[in-house]
Amino acid sequence: MSNENTNGHNMLVQVKNLKTHFFLTEGIVRAVDGVNFYIDRGRTLGVVGESGCGKSVTARSIMNMIRPPGRNVAGQVIYHRQKKEAQGSTVTEEIDLLTLEPMSAEMRSIRGGEFSMIFQEPRASLSPLHTIGTQIMEGLKLHMDIDDEEARQRAIEQLQRVNIPKAEERIDAYAHQLSGGMCQRAMIALALACQPALLIADEPTTSLDVTTEAQILNLMRELQDTFHTSIMYITHNMAVIAEIAQRVLVMYMGKDVELAPVDALFYDPRHPYTRALLRSIPRIDDEREMLAVMRGNVPDPYALPTGCPFHPRCESRLRVCSQPVEVPYVEVSPGHFVRCHLYAGGG
C-alpha cells in the first residue's frame, strides 16, 4: 500500500491492519480483524456496515480507548500531527497512537483535544446531573490553559456557533431540559470546543428525526469548512453517506471489504457485499415489489466462517473463497480498494 503524501493525499490518520479483539468467557470476539483506511485532512470518511460489524470498535480504537476485556492485538493508528514551528512553518510528526498507554497524559491530551467523538444518543451522552456548560468547560480547561471565566465565555461561543439560541442561558441547562436535536448540537459544541483535527461521529443522527438530521448534517459541513476538521462519519444510512462523505469505508464482520471514493462506491461498487448493500436500499423510482434482502444471516461472531467471512452469503462465490487463505486486498483503480478474490488478478 502506498498512501504517502506523494500521491496527492494529505493524510491525517492512517489505520493499518487494525485488529481489536474481545476476550470473553464465551470465546474471542474478533470485532475488528484487519482494517486499513486513511482519513484526509479536512475531508470526511464515511463508514458503513451492518450492525455489529465493528464500526464503533474501530472508532474507539482510533481514540485508543478500548478497555478490557477488549484489546488492540495488532495494527497501527498513525496520527500525522502538524506542529507549528517557531519560524511559522509547520512540521508533521507521525505518532502511532496504539503504542501510547491509553491513560497516559499524552494520549489523554490527544483524546478530546485533537481527536474528539460524538455519539449516537446525544442525551445519554450528556451527564444527567451536570449542566452542559460544566461539561464543555471541563474539556476546555483540560486541554487549554484558560481560567473559568474564559472557559465559560468560549463555551457560550461554541454553543452560539452550533446555533443554539439563547446560549448564555442554555449553558446552565441540563440535558433533560433540551430536545434531542439541541443535545446533539451541544455534543457537537462540546466535541469541537478544542478545535480538534479529527471528529469521529458515531451515528450522530440515528436517534433524531429527519428534519433535525438534515440540520445537524448541514451544521457539521459548515463547521468542517470553517475549521478544516476531518470527520469520520459512521452511519447505517447510505443517503447520508452520499451527502456528506468524500470517501467511504465498507465493513463486514470486522473486515474492511471496500474503501473507495464516494462516487466510485455508488456507481461502480466492486465487492459483492457492497453491491448487495446498495441493492437493499429502496429507491423512489423503484418498481420492485420487495426489497432485495440479502440472503443468509450475519454469522455468529464467535464462529466466523473460514476464508472470506462473506462467502456463505455471497452470490459470486468462488471455490477459493471458503479456503483458509488470506483474501487479497486489491487497488482496482486509484484510491479504490477491494478485499475480494474476484479481483485477485488486479481488477
Binding site: 447505517h236 429502496p282 434482502v293 440479502m294 450475519v298
Partner: peptide
C-alpha cells in the same frame, strides 16, 4: 415484513435478519 419507509436503514434490515435467526 415489507418495508414501506423510503430510507430503511441497514440497522433495520439487520434487525429483521436477527429476528429470523
Amino acid at each position: 415484513n415489507i418495508p414501506q419507509v423510503q430510507d430503511q436503514t441497514l440497522a433495520e434490515i439487520g434487525a429483521d435478519l436477527e429476528d429470523q435467526v
